[in-house]
């Protein structure tokens, strides 16, 4: 968007911009900013004997970091999200690389479009689909048993592995997109120059291509981390209730205990983690690219 008023229409136009943005601003203020203020305020409240007490205490935060159930949920969430990010990068990078460099451009784009097609299944349905595949009686177990590879069905559903598989499935698609976008922006002459100067294919990859595609990797990794750590659906359907992640712990406070202050404090912790992830990766977003 153009930043400076070149052809600012004369007269009462200064107020007009704000007036036009007014309804959208009002909506966001009333239904987003105000509720966020309430979440932060509630996180300082207490729930004593089923009654809400408006107080100014950091007790909920203390509990979030010290009580075993909450701390484990936070640690689980961090672990699962980090594993998801790493696994998704490892799976998606070669895909994006092959599509960008080893295929005619047209084919690469067709295959990329094909790769993101399952994005359009509903998110809840996608987790359910993995349940079909991973359940005790599911596709994987039935196949393994028919082939005589295992005698008893192996347990995948309702474990952390199932959650990670569901996440990696979803985020590989996302990551392939952002990495592909980065790779096709690297001028071919750079890689050619490296090869002409005698670098092997491997060295070209490590010293030229990889560093230049880093912005795509970082953007993809950031989005993956943020979306994974805030997601309730996949861990609840695939991971089950044995090992809780942070969003599940938050939902449990709301649904089971009706403890909104505790849920609000855990939400604030979640937002804090996302904010830190942003600070850690923001500096790298702009690198290279153009």
């Amino acid at each position: 968007m153009a930043a400076v008023g070149r052809t600012r229409p004369e007269g009462a136009s200064t107020g007009r911009g704000w007036a036009l943005a007014g309804p959208a601003l009002a909506w966001t203020t009333a239904f987003f900013l105000a509720p966020m203020v309430f979440v932060l305020a509630y996180s300082l409240f207490r729930r004593v004997g089923g009654e809400l007490v408006a107080s100014l205490s950091f007790e909920n935060y203390r509990r979030a970091f010290t009580e075993a159930a909450f701390r484990t949920a936070l640690v689980n969430s961090l672990e699962v999200s980090v594993i998801t990010v790493i696994a998704s990068v490892l799976v998606a990078y070669p895909v994006a690389y092959l599509l960008a460099y080893r295929m005619p451009r047209r084919w690469g784009q067709v295959l990329l479009a094909l790769a993101v097609l399952p994005f359009w299944t509903s998110y809840v349905v996608r987790s359910y689909s993995w349940l079909l595949v991973l359940a005790k009686e599911g596709v994987v177990n039935r196949t393994l048993m028919a082939l005589g590879l295992v005698a008893e069905p192996i347990t995948i559903a309702n474990t952390r592995a199932a959650t990670v598989i569901g996440f990696v499935h979803f985020f590989t698609m996302l990551m392939a997109l952002t990495i592909y976008a980065s790779l096709v922006q690297i001028p071919e002459s750079y890689r050619k120059a490296a090869r002409d100067l005698g670098a092997s294919g491997w060295r070209t990859l490590v010293h030229v291509t990889l560093p230049l595609s880093l912005p795509g990797v970082v953007v993809g990794a950031f989005l993956t981390f943020v979306l994974a750590i805030g997601d309730y659906i996949t861990p609840q359907i695939l991971g089950g209730a044995q090992e809780l992640l942070l969003p599940q712990a938050i939902m449990l406070q709301v649904q089971r205990s009706g403890d909104f202050p505790m849920a609000a404090a855990l939400s604030a912790v979640l937002l804090l983690v996302i904010g830190l992830a942003y600070l850690a990766s923001a500096r790298r977003f702009g690198l290279g690219a153009r």
Partner: peptide
């Protein structure tokens, strides 16, 4: 701004209000 906040937290906020 709402892009930066998880749907779960947005839902929780509206639910509280």
């Amino acid at each position: 701004a709402p892009i930066a906040v998880s749907y779960l937290v947005i839902g929780l906020g509206l639910s509280i209000v």
